[in-house]
Design a protein around this nucleic acid. Structure first.
Lengths: 161, 161
DNA sequence: GCCAAATTCGCAAACACCTTGCGGGCATTT
DNA sequence: AAATGCCCGCAAGGTGTTTGCGAATTTGGC
């Protein structure tokens, strides 16, 4: 299910490029852009979904319009590197809707890198002090805040496919 | 255009929750889920788009199926903090399709935090040495690599709206 | 380089969905 | 209590999706 042996030709790549950019495209528009008639185009999209290349379609919302004006980058270190601690940490992090990303990373500075979206500093403080630092094993926490979004996109580079 | 005075009631919130999770929902399905008939539902969606709350719809793809198995977190420091350097840096970063996120951040450790998606270490090395570190003003670079994606989602927390 | 097999295309028809104007009901205001 | 404005649902026409099928193209073997 997760092997990467998926044949992707020129047309598939253009389909993926278009859909990455605009998931609201009708099949007709998509077909026109990739130079195909609607039916084979839809069949290719279905096949790409079936193959697991296309994961899901989502709608992106504007943070500021929703009063979510603060984005924080949090680096976290764990004291004892035992599996149970990591499992527990990950479970607790998944429960926080404010956390959009959480990666286990290499390097000695930190074990986890998180990105959180909150309305303001008060909520951030609550998240950090009441929820994150209370998780067993969390020893070091370092937070930065996003001043400016230079790049913030979801599309993958398809030039290597 | 970017003020946040947007009236969002219970139904709008449910619409946004549904669309964040599944952008491929038909208007009929959406209407049913939020307890509305198709026409007022579509009108609300249109209004939310018009108001700029709904930004765009995108399709998320599976990295590994496309041979993009390496994700890097890069922290960058700049030597002289003059506007021209930052402008130039940002312009050059935008040209890299591998860079999905680039934030200007607070804190003394770094000025920018980037996330890059690449096929392998060779490409990462090329990106880092030939493109990023060659940008005038870049003085410090620290890279980490993603070992495991604990959380990786695009939906915002709507509990505060 | 040719032929057979498999794949993938485009067409057309049936179906589902979107989209608009309109009338009616509910809430808020005067 | 009446008037106003807002938002709902209905219905009809237009648009897009989806399926089977025959034709064309590509793939692989000899």
């Amino acid at each position: 299910m997760s092997e990467k042996l998926v044949r992707i030709d020129k047309i598939d790549r253009r389909i993926l490029e278009c859909l990455q950019q605009d998931g609201g495209l009708t099949n007709q528009e998509l077909a026109e852009r990739v130079g195909l008639s609607p039916s084979p185009c839809l069949r290719r999209v279905r096949a790409l979904e079936e193959a697991g290349v296309i994961l899901k379609r989502v709608t992106l919302l504007e943070r500021k319009k929703l009063g979510l004006s603060l984005t924080a980058i949090i680096l976290i270190s764990m004291d004892r590197h035992i599996p149970e601690r990591f499992e527990e940490f990950q479970k607790r992090i998944e429960e926080c809707p404010e956390i959009q990303e959480c990666y286990l990373i290499t390097g000695h500075d930190a074990d986890y890198m998180l990105k959180a979206v909150v309305p303001d500093m008060d909520v951030f403080q609550e998240l950090l002090l009441n929820r994150i630092t209370r998780i067993p094993g969390v020893s070091g926490v370092h937070s930065s805040f996003v001043l400016r979004r230079v790049v913030d996109k979801t599309d993958l580079p398809l030039g290597y496919v």
